[in-house]
Design a protein around this nucleic acid. Sequence first.
DNA 1: TTGACGTATGCCGATATGGGAATACGATGG
DNA 2: CCATCGTATTCCCATATCGGCATACGTCAA
Lengths: 116, 116
Amino acid sequence: MAGMARAATTSDVFNAIAEPQRREILVLLRAGERPVTDLAQELGMSQPGASKHLRVLREVGLVRVRGVGKQRLYGLDARGLRPVHEWAGGFERFWNESFDRLDTYVQDLKQTRQEE
Amino acid sequence: MAGMARAATTSDVFNAIAEPQRREILVLLRAGERPVTDLAQELGMSQPGASKHLRVLREVGLVRVRGVGKQRLYGLDARGLRPVHEWAGGFERFWNESFDRLDTYVQDLKQTRQEE
DNA sequence: TTGACGTATGCCGATATGGGAATACGATGG
DNA sequence: CCATCGTATTCCCATATCGGCATACGTCAA
């Protein structure tokens, strides 16, 4: 076991929401519970595709399922998104500060090359 | 070209911050600019490793570099984290609501199996 | 110019991922 | 019990990562 390719999408919320389609699923679920087929159709993806994404979301706890007859309704459990919100929020003062102020460390080193 | 393995870490902020070590780098950079070696040491990773992560962060615009003599100082540009914060914030009312209230859709279908 | 130092890249191996297609599974209705 | 609908799982492929290692690159000092 030499190289590992990332923290396993299935164990980390940050990873789970790294996938655009999974984010879309979460957004759709804000409107209420839905069966897989519904989601698949609305997002223009295959049923197996949707099922797979939902599985990831379930494994990180962002989604809940309950069986209703033949169907399985997926519902949102947004609690796991709170840490994400808070983590990003920890940078709020940095994106609010203008870059000039942010670069206090730079003050003394005026006029340096600005890569890219 | 059949299967694509994800949106390319280098083009999406969500993907860039899916990596724990990259998140750590961003956190460290809140304290101010730093050279690669510094970060690498502090995070217990190799210099090439740190350079690679920083490259990803640079490509999504979360980090800036400027050359100072032999060194290259990396600095935070947190503006890209704002969308993340806002996206997650869009779910705030859902994690605040108790699950019972959230399941209004469920009200009429009492006592259903609760998977997992 | 030649070192030396700091840093970026290239290459490799092991692994994970997402999509497609086929198929297995589960529950309900007859 | 069987057919059917809704959904999950499995296989396979092409690709993308991440880490380690070696190495190329760039800048400064002498």
